[in-house]
Amino acid sequence: MCAQKPPAGHFTILYFASASSYTRKQHDFFSGPLPISKLPDLLEERYSGIKEKVLGSCALTVNLDYVDMEEEAAKAEQCLVVQEGDEVAIIPPVSSG
């Protein structure tokens, strides 16, 4: 998907559609490992307003599997940890067809 591999100690995050318009990018590399529940705040730091304007209506995948963010947040310390080299994606509401 993203042609470039993340640098050592980083994972890739992909932006599509409205997420891509908001960040004005198609991807970023963030340093990992990172507990998934910390990702929204990290994105908010970099892209002020993204939580409310974009993430609220989006789903999230890690290595092509959907992650239930509420469930992960509830697990606190035991939540899924994004590893170095992983591919995370922000998935806005789809409009195929």
Binding site: A17, P92, V94, S96
Partner: peptide, 10 residues
């Protein structure tokens, strides 16, 4: 397909 497939229309 319209409900689920990860394709976005501009």
């Amino acid at each position: 397909v319209k409900e689920k497939v990860e394709v976005w229309k501009e």
